[in-house]
């Protein structure tokens, strides 16, 4: 099977079982550069598993994932982790910031891991923090900032390497609606300005309303609402 023309990241016929649980059962996906696609569906339907497979974190039992013309399964583990570090960004429900580091050090971390010198890394980190309106928190540690602020720091960190694909799994799940909306506004604005594709897992319609289109996952099967019409 060939991926849809022009897609940056796509998946065909993904299957993944955890013991007796079929988390994915023929799921399909595709996303273009600059596109925000919401992955919706009830809890336990396989949304996170799909995201983990697309990001090369989890290996599906069968099916193909193609990123930028390359099949993920044909890559070595080292190539896949290099891809994750340099081309993918991640935001999860709970920011998962390193508590011992300051906010700016947290945001700079992905660049440091890619070998960028400290000063340059922190300069880029700070510019992203400013875009997300948390520049003044640079010296604070994650324990000293609010949930909404911490999540903006996490979004800044996910964008600091200018990823081509941003994976966001319930990024506003732990925030109140005002903070959640601001995070979504800033996240989608930032992604659009860099032409990054965003895979946005959410079960909330208000969050999905920031996407360009949605797919629905149910019992490990996906439904592309645009193509279904």
């Amino acid at each position: 099977m060939t991926p849809p023309a022009g897609s940056l990241l796509s998946a065909e016929q993904l299957r993944k079982a955890y013991g007796p649980t079929l988390a994915l059962d023929g799921a399909e996906f595709s996303i273009h550069p600059g596109e925000v696609v919401a992955v919706m569906g009830p809890s336990g339907s396989g949304k996170s598993t799909l995201l983990h497979c697309l990001a090369g974190i989890v290996t599906p039992d069968s099916g193909t994932i193609t990123y930028n013309g390359h099949e993920l399964s044909a890559m070595s583990d080292a190539q896949r982790s290099a891809l994750r570090r340099s081309e993918f960004g991640f935001v999860f429900q709970f920011g998962q910031l390193v508590p011992e580091l300051t906010c700016v050090e947290n945001v700079a971390l992905p660049l440091r891991l890619n070998g960028t010198p400290r000063k340059a890394a922190e300069r880029t980190a700070l510019s992203w923090m400013e875009r997300l309106e948390v520049g003044d928190l640079r010296k604070k540690r994650p324990g000293e900032v609010s949930g909404g602020q911490g999540q903006r720091v996490a979004v800044a960190r996910s964008l600091v390497t200018s990823p081509r694909v941003l994976f966001a799994d319930e990024p506003t799940g732990a925030l109140d609606s005002l903070n959640g909306e601001r995070v979504m506004e800033l996240l989608t604005e930032a992604a659009r300005s860099t032409n990054a594709a965003v895979v946005l897992v959410t079960h909330e319609a208000r969050v999905a309303a920031y996407s360009d289109r949605e797919i629905v996952v149910r019992d490990g099967k996906s439904r592309d609402m645009e193509r279904a019409v």
């Binding site: 506004e185 309303a209 149910r218 609402m225 279904a228 019409v229």
Partner: peptide, 24 residues
């Protein structure tokens, strides 16, 4: 019946996108 619900959700989301954009 799932189809009826999915089609309606999609239509609602279409309206919500327009409102979200206007809000922005």
């Amino acid at each position: 019946a799932t189809e009826v619900l999915d089609t309606q959700r999609s239509e609602h989301l279409r309206s919500m996108r327009i409102l979200t954009d206007r809000k922005r």
